[in-house]
């Protein structure tokens, strides 16, 4: 699974949760860039990502991330880069 694969799958989760097909995730994207990205939606993203990538994630660690790039790195780390 390439970094681009992870980015696209994460982008799909964001588009579904925020009901917005125009969302483009970049490494530099932060909660400030998406109007409705609050703590509750953050949890929904985590839960949806767990389902999508088949691994449980550390919510506390995710809350320390600066941007989407950190999240993508973390997903590659926990999935070993080659998970479903």
């Amino acid at each position: 699974m390439t970094r681009e694969d992870v980015r696209l799958r994460l982008q799909g989760i964001f588009r579904k949760i925020f009901d917005d097909e125009s969302i483009e995730l970049l490494d530099a994207t932060t909660a400030d860039d998406i109007e409705e990205w609050d703590s509750l939606n953050q949890i929904k993203i985590i839960l949806a990502a767990e389902e999508e990538f088949g691994h449980s994630l550390n919510a506390r660690r995710i809350s320390t991330f600066d941007n989407v790039g950190d999240m993508i790195d973390y997903l590659i780390e926990v999935t070993g880069g080659g998970a479903a």
Partner: peptide, 13 residues
């Protein structure tokens, strides 16, 4: 239990 711990919703989405 996980969703409950995260956001006090006792059932999954």
């Amino acid at each position: 239990a996980r969703t409950y711990a995260l956001c006090k919703q006792p059932f999954a989405n």
